[in-house]
């Protein structure tokens, strides 16, 4: 029974990413490598951040403002990293295109570019879920559960799995948005991503209030849905543009 609960929490946090992985990523080895690389990058960013913040830990869990600073710096750092990732991706795209020319295969399609972005985002998201939620789930496989005082209605594991799911969604699709924004020089998309990330991070501060998770989690999911809608619209727009352009060529 408890094992079932543990697996349930895991699937709650990672189920959508798992299906995404199997349906899109797993067929193309290169995308798997992208996911791994991006997961590693996120892990490194987390280690650097924790190295910086290690001196100030443990923070008092009564005051909230040190945590606010922590979130702002972390989000800032990770968004900076995203720009770096974009540069690396640009170079990679050139290499891949050159390679495709050499083997006389078509260059990267628009869908391929988006899939690479998706794989990059998925890596970030999965890393987030794994380190913030899954690694704390070990006790959930045992014969007990755990509640924290501020959110006494729901078990801690369930809450963290829910939050992780929201963040996985945000991370995964904001990478697609960001890469498209950079590629097209679209300022709105470029600023949309850090804004969503920061707001989502700040929303988790609501959990500090007693019983705050009841409000915090819906807002977080609002953010996730917003990201999804924006990403879907943008992808649809670009695909139709692309198709009409191809239609003009022929």
């Amino acid at each position: 029974m408890t094992v079932a609960a543990g697996i349930g929490y895991t699937l709650l946090a990672l189920g959508p990413s798992l299906s995404l992985f199997i349906s899109v990523i797993a067929k193309k080895p290169f995308l798997i490598l992208t996911v791994l690389a991006s997961t590693l990058l996120w892990l490194i960013s987390l280690i650097v951040l924790s190295g910086v913040w290690r001196a100030f830990l443990p923070l008092k869990s009564t005051t909230w403002w040190p945590y606010a600073i922590l979130i702002i710096t972390s989000v800032g750092f990770q968004e900076g990293l995203r720009v770096l990732l974009w540069r690396a991706y640009k170079r990679l795209e050139d290499i891949l295109d050159a390679f495709a020319d050499r083997v006389s295969k078509p260059r990267l399609f628009l869908t391929d570019q988006m899939q690479i972005a998706l794989a990059g985002g998925l890596g970030h998201g999965v890393a987030h879920a794994v380190f913030f939620c899954l690694s704390l789930l070990t006790p959930a496989f045992g014969p007990a559960t755990f509640f924290i005082d501020r959110c006494a209605q729901i078990p801690f594991f369930l809450v963290s799995a829910q939050i992780a799911l929201a963040f996985v969604t945000i991370h995964t699709f904001s990478m697609v948005i960001a890469f498209n924004g950079y590629a097209q020089g679209n300022k709105v998309d470029q600023y949309f991503v850090p804004a969503i990330h920061l707001v989502a991070g700040m929303v988790t501060l609501v959990n500090f209030a007693s019983g705050g998770c009841v409000i915090g989690i819906p807002i977080l999911y609002l953010m996730a849905v917003l990201t999804l809608i924006h990403c879907g619209k943008m992808v649809f727009r670009r695909l139709t543009e692309n198709r009409s352009r191809q239609g003009n060529f022929q």
Binding site: S50, S74, V75, F156, G201
Partner: peptide, 24 residues
């Protein structure tokens, strides 16, 4: 390297934030 970095640096950080339901 990653084992010791994780054990010494990351674990207290992540546990500290995640048990307060803070994520980013």
């Amino acid at each position: 390297l990653f084992y010791f970095l994780t054990r010494l640096l990351m674990e207290p950080f992540v546990v500290g934030t995640a048990t307060n339901l803070l994520m980013f």
